[in-house]
Design a protein around this nucleic acid. Structure first.
Lengths: 342, 342
DNA sequence: TTGTACGCGTTATCAC
DNA sequence: GTGATAACGCGTACAA
């Protein structure tokens, strides 16, 4: 059942219009280089045959795919969703298609996916964070594939990046925490291994503590994957400590949401008994109860700017310049002064 | 600066190993069809040249891309994230790569993206929901691209689908609501136009009401995009009604989260004064306060099964069979009996 | 302005 | 077991 004829080619269109394949190709790619009359005929044929150019053939011929690849650590939560959506929107405006895949925070998987994307002819690659084997960068260099790092800004890194200063942002938040009067600060961080954002956020807190003359060794730190349940578990462990922390700073909003959920389960009221902070300001942050005091990251802006810069690199208009996106602390209800000294 | 030599080809490898391109190709694709000794030499050359096959060329030759495309309505929130991640995981296990793009709930954009994906040689397509111009299905038919619908199960539809019965699921939830004693029920639905899931969910509620002998005309229904803020707005409008509904059922958890947030802002306590329900059971549902009574959708299971079925179709092992995924109501705290009659 | 003919990198079909 | 060689569909010098 169904017609057995396969997709029409440039040749089919040419025959139908009584012209050569070259003319058809020109009609499609540079219409001004062909006379009105023939163009009409050709377009007619294109329409009636419902011709769609074969992508692989075009890539072969022109050695460009108008495809940008992005490898993100996970699609499982909303951390990267908004920024990536904006990235894609801008890319489309510029005539590029986005190819996404996720590495599940596994460097080996990421390496694999980078190879796949390059083999598929991606004209450029978006990577998250700088922490990566140098071998990978060499590979990209060899294949002449421009790449850009996002979600992290490091002007001194070898790769250009469009992102924000994770350390500085978290440091600022920590200052607010200190200013509120907290001294017994605990951290729930994401896994720092192979994750420069997580590392920088921890470093930012430590920096703020040092500036205040506080010993950083004393502060409890738990590393755990960015999952609600993990955040909840970690929070429970921290609450069992003696002395109990008066504030739990979290590596991102997902962990903070987990902490909040656990606090409720344990009948610990936030922020009256314990304060909690997040990072990212994803939608979640405004919805949980109490709403999270967190670091606002302009994900959309970052996504669009990253797209613009990467396209510029791909088109040879830029050698890769880094762009710093400004973040700011957004104050909601999960942070308050500590309970009066016991 | 940088070496100017471009990526090595099969030919380069062949020369380096002193064999023909055919042999190199065989080494890579069916290693058993070549003798150990030569294979060693070839692999050595592959290694040292860091050869990566050119994808476009392979696609041209073999007329298969081992790529599956998926067009989802949005990447902006978590509705599709988990299912899609599972879809991708299974795809990878089967040796396929996923290409995602989002249509922003715009039929025109979706049409565009389908064409793009097909032109890129996608071996199969995953679509969300059945509501779509017949022209699109004809196009896919012409191009011999198998496609599968997900997030919606409709055995009678022309397209095979791996999903759940949105109507039945919502109907069951509505029965619970009725059983709790509610009679003044309001709905915040997603935009139903072009969205069969949203339509089915509304229909499910209406069916439950009818079964109870209640007039469906009387029940307030607001349609609004699936966004937190929109859910909040709609909730506010419903709360201004007289008589005020005793329960607000929402088209999904995102809308419900918005409703909850607004309830809190208005100092309306849930579920004591008003009950709220969701749909999907995304992570959000367990985190908001009070936790949402909602319909649990096994997104991971759906994603994996969709991948398996679509791959089977692409490989000619299936003509497309529909799979129904079972959902169930999960009871948390946002639904309670209505306040005692005034 | 339009047509001819070749190349892009791979796989598959033959011979050898 | 291995090597020529012909596709695959498109873009583009180059020629007309």
């Amino acid at each position: 059942m169904g017609k057995n004829r396969s997709a029409p080619t440039l040749n089919d269109v040419a025959k139908a219009a009584g012209v050569s394949t070259a003319t058809v190709s020109r009609c499609l790619n540079s219409p001004d280089r062909v006379i009105e009359a023939t163009r009409q005929r050709v377009m007619q044929a294109v329409e009636s045959l419902r011709y769609t150019p074969n992508f692989a053939a075009r890539v072969m011929a022109v050695k460009r795919s108008f495809t940008i690849g992005a490898i993100i650590p996970t699609m499982d939560n909303a951390i990267f969703a908004r920024g990536l959506q904006a990235f894609q929107d801008q890319l489309r405006e510029d005539g590029y298609t986005l190819l996404v895949s996720s590495s599940a925070y596994d460097p080996e998987a990421e390496r694999e996916q980078i190879r796949t994307l390059v083999a598929r002819g991606a004209d450029g690659l978006l990577l998250i964070g700088h922490a990566r084997e140098p071998e990978i960068y060499e590979y990209l260099e060899r294949h002449q594939v421009p790449s850009l790092v996002a979600w992290s800004f490091e002007p001194d890194a070898t790769k250009p990046s469009v992102g924000f200063n994770n350390s500085e942002a978290m440091c600022e938040l920590a200052r607010r925490v200190l200013a509120a009067g907290h001294r017994r600060i605990a951290l729930i961080s994401g896994i720092t291994k192979g994750n420069d954002r997580a590392q920088a956020r921890v470093a930012g807190i430590q920096q703020a503590l040092l500036a205040e003359g506080l010993a950083i060794k004393k502060f409890p730190l738990i590393e755990t994957p960015y999952e609600i349940d993990k955040g909840a578990e970690a929070f429970a462990r921290l609450m069992a400590l003696d002395p109990r922390p008066t504030v739990v700073m979290c590596g991102n909003d997902v962990l903070a949401a987990g902490a909040l959920r656990e606090a409720q389960r344990l009948n610990i009221s936030v922020p009256e008994q314990v304060s909690v902070t997040g990072f990212d300001d994803i939608e979640l942050a405004g919805i949980v109860h109490p709403a999270l005091t967190t670091v606002h990251v302009p994900h959309r802006e970052m996504g669009r700017k990253a797209a613009r810069e990467l396209v510029a690199m791909v088109e040879g208009r830029s050698l890769g310049k880094s762009v710093c996106i400004n973040t700011h602390v957004v104050t909601r209800h999960s942070l308050a002064p500590p309970p009066a000294a016991e």
